[in-house]
């Protein structure tokens, strides 16, 4: 019995619980081109049921978003407050991300993560001036996918 328990214990080494990162994020770097600075940012997911706040931050330099896994497009309303030489202004822009989602099997304990191949990205130009795709693959590893300049 002791031998049987020892055998079961040895055979299960390293197999207890999930040690992987399951969630995958779309990462954007926010870069200022002039004297203005972004003081506040709210990111709202636009759905058929209405807008839903996904994340908010003060003086952000980056943005982390979760893409909807059961469709091929996610639209985010970016509600931005900027500081321009002491004066505050508010802008609303819409970021549209098109992608192909696919499940990625991690292991039996973790199940799967969701990875994405970005097919297109666009943003309205009330505040933002440009967009660059740095990495079109979204995985469970941290990487910068796009750079947004304002």
């Amino acid at each position: 019995m002791v031998l049987a328990n020892a055998i079961m214990l040895l055979s299960s080494c390293g197999n207890n619980g999930c040690e992987e990162t399951r969630e995958s994020y779309f990462n954007a770097t926010l870069t200022a081109t002039g004297r203005i600075s972004l003081t506040k940012l709210y990111a709202w997911a636009l759905t058929a049921d209405g807008d839903s706040l996904m994340t908010s931050s003060s003086s952000p330099t980056s943005l982390e978003l979760m893409l909807r896994p059961d469709t091929t497009q996610t639209r985010i309303r970016l509600q931005c407050t900027i500081d321009d030489s002491g004066d505050e202004y508010q802008y609303d822009d819409t970021l549209t991300i098109g992608y192909q989602p696919y499940p990625y099997f991690l292991d039996m304990e973790c199940g799967c993560s969701m990875f994405y191949d970005i097919t297109e990205v666009s943003v309205t130009d009330h505040l933002f001036k440009g967009i660059t795709i740095n990495n079109s693959e979204i995985t469970n590893e941290e990487t910068v996918n796009i750079t947004l300049t304002y």
């Binding site: 399951r22 969630e23 996904m54 979760m66 896994p69 059961d70 499940p103 099997f105 199940g111 799967c112």
Partner: peptide, 23 residues
């Protein structure tokens, strides 16, 4: 082949079941 996979994130909730065949 892997089947009965579910993906859950903090914002969108649960997606699944999904399968991956032919790895």
């Amino acid at each position: 082949n892997v089947s009965n996979l579910y993906y859950t994130d903090a914002f969108w909730g649960e997606t699944g079941p999904m399968s991956i065949d032919g790895m």
